[in-house]
Design a protein around this nucleic acid. Sequence first.
DNA 1: ATACGATCTCTAGTGGCTAGAGGTTCAAGA
DNA 2: TCTTGAACCTCTAGCCACTAGAGATCGTAT
Lengths: 138, 138
Amino acid sequence: MFSIGELSKRTKVKIPTIRYYEGMGLLAAPERTTGNQRRYDAAGLERLSFIKHARDLGFSIDAISALIELQDHPDRSCQAATAIAAGQLLDVRAKIKRLRTLEKELVRMSKGCDGDGVSQDCYVLASLADHDLCAHEH
Amino acid sequence: MFSIGELSKRTKVKIPTIRYYEGMGLLAAPERTTGNQRRYDAAGLERLSFIKHARDLGFSIDAISALIELQDHPDRSCQAATAIAAGQLLDVRAKIKRLRTLEKELVRMSKGCDGDGVSQDCYVLASLADHDLCAHEH
DNA sequence: ATACGATCTCTAGTGGCTAGAGGTTCAAGA
DNA sequence: TCTTGAACCTCTAGCCACTAGAGATCGTAT
């Protein structure tokens, strides 16, 4: 049995965030001391670790709720979990794609400008003002 | 002189967003009709296009404010604008790096799981539960 | 004159936390 | 046993960049 501070240290999840997860129903409300303080056990630690890990991988709270549902009902098929992970992968890939386009554009923008001169001639500002100067759609 | 709806159509920025930008001080408050409706001119259109373009490239509202400041004071050096763009580039690259790590991990996770079997054996759920099954730090 | 779409302001909600106020409890040392 | 001080409690508000909705008013075409 350990306190919320201890749980926070072990999982590297901040204390208000732990309480927030509890409020959201992601994390079961733990036992309390007579003085109303939370006391966690190994199960709480495991679950929070799971949540932390999934958040680090970019899963939304909703997706994590769904995954936890699946965890708690081992009779259900693994397909659903795999589908959620696949969705997350698509999401991540779409974000990468978009960011790579932005990266290219920003590199192009910065190259055009040697950092001298005044703003009228600044390629960065000119590029932002006029989309036609862009090489890619974004 | 055109309405906010017209401006919205031309820039593809939604009407509430335009008003939000005005409230934030990004976009100058335009003239009004006697009936209190906003009426924009070419300058407003240009500025909003600039903002839209910068937002599409991922610049924060703060960064855009700074860029607009520079635009409005052409006597200042272009270096500042270039620095902001460089910062944005670093940001974008950091995000890409992180997402690529996530992508690898998600691919690895999904591959371990053939979609059959029940949750106890689900590699997706197992991987999330146990960080040690991960190949990369994230 | 009337209809009706466009606009107005204002408030509240989104996601995923984070910060702070103001009060209570726990645990270690004297 | 008492005291101190860190840790904890709840509650509200704030962050970013919008988005949605209510309820009222305006503009324009017929």
